[in-house]
């Protein structure tokens, strides 16, 4: 670990003020479950670490008639325990899937959304894009992207909450780059695919940060998440899907489906969602939607099996939305 300066501001603007305007020069610390490991391996070597853990405005969950607002510094297990989150069982399921008391109690919602890719070339110091993607293309890409991988970025987005939050239509509140600046945007706009090593995997600027996540109230919808997990524990799923449908008498009126662990961002499979509208959600349509969802996958040399896993994830998430047994583990 490289020696660094440490700041622990009490208010959002102070944090923004402290952040450097160059990626990597400063890093935000929340639960630390990702950042500390990256710093120990010297994959990131910030000169300044800004903790958000004492910023009270970024903690806790509040609700009103239009939805819930979650402070980015709220720990995952606080969501699990909160009755305010009872209307969002799929979010709780996604947190339970993380299956580690340590991570659930230490990780924050904002940190979970901002964790860096698990790509082993990135984590071994080859850079976020690992030589413009060449290491991945010619190397061990069994866990890499099957969508959105035509550019140099081949990693998969690491967040386990993003697909379900996006399916639910989450928005984020962002502050910066100057103190006093604030903006609200759909979570979907937060992620983007970097084109070069100067960029990161989000659309934020170095002096911006997420302070809150907002979920709209919408009791008529039903949402589910399915992850293909190799086993117990917090290891990354091999593929994941979150599906969110408004159903009337079993017929889909509106749908949103997002894949996780298959692309450099959470991956919106609009075609499958559109196809579902007007159809009865059942075993057959769930299966067919899964097939549509992966029809345009572009697997790398060793990860074609993930196409099947993504297809099954969509099918199973939709079965769960329909109130059916998922059909497998």
């Amino acid at each position: 670990m490289k020696a660094f300066r440490y700041a622990s501001p009490r208010v959002e603007d102070e944090a923004v003020d402290l952040l450097e305007d160059r990626w990597g020069a400063s890093e935000l610390l929340a639960g630390g479950t990702d950042l500390v490991g990256l710093m120990k391996k010297m994959v990131v070597t910030p000169e300044l670490v800004v903790s958000v853990n004492r910023i009270d405005s970024m903690r806790g969950i509040t609700a009103d008639s239009t939805g819930v607002t979650i402070g980015a510094g709220t720990h995952l297990d606080e969501l699990l325990d909160s009755p305010l989150m009872d209307d969002y069982p799929a979010v709780k399921q996604a947190i339970r899937n993380i299956d580690s008391l340590q991570l659930q109690s230490q990780s924050t919602v904002g940190g979970e959304l901002c964790q860096r890719p698990r790509c082993w070339y990135f984590r071994n110091g080859y850079g976020l894009l690992a030589d413009q993607g060449r290491h991945v293309v010619e190397g061990e890409n069994q866990y890499h992207a099957i969508f959105g991988n035509s550019g140099p970025a081949k990693f998969v987005s690491a967040s386990r909450l993003a697909p379900v939050l996006m399916a639910l239509g989450a928005e984020i509140r962002v502050v910066g780059p100057s103190p006093g600046d604030e903006t609200t945007m759909p979570l979907e706009f937060f992620y983007r695919i970097p084109r070069n090593e100067r960029q990161r995997e989000t659309s934020l600027e170095p002096r911006q940060m997420i302070t809150h996540i907002r979920l709209p109230a919408d009791a008529e919808r039903s949402c589910a998440v399915y992850e293909v997990r190799r086993g117990a524990g917090p290891a990354d799923p091999l593929a994941a899907a979150a599906a969110h449908c408004r159903l009337r008498d079993g017929v889909v009126e509106a749908a949103r489906i997002y894949l996780g662990q298959v692309a450099p961002t959470p991956w919106n499979v609009e075609e499958a969602a559109r196809w579902l509208v007007g159809r009865t959600l059942d075993e057959r349509t769930a299966r067919e939607a899964g097939e549509i969802a992966v029809a345009r996958a572009t697997p790398l040399s060793k990860n074609a099996y993930k196409v099947q896993l993504a297809r099954v994830s969509v099918e199973r998430a939709l079965r769960l939305v329909a109130g059916l047994d998922c059909g497998g583990f």
Binding site: D99, Y121, E138, E140, R230, G231, A235
Partner: peptide, 30 residues
């Protein structure tokens, strides 16, 4: 039988998963 494996990169000879988050062991639930 189900989890553990060293993953090497052919071009560099790098042991890619030499950490506990990607060198998978069985957990109690497994």
């Amino acid at each position: 039988s189900l989890f553990e494996e060293r993953i090497f990169d052919a071009r560099t000879g790098k042991f890619l998963n030499a950490d506990m988050s990607s060198y998978n062991l069985a957990r109690l639930g497994d």
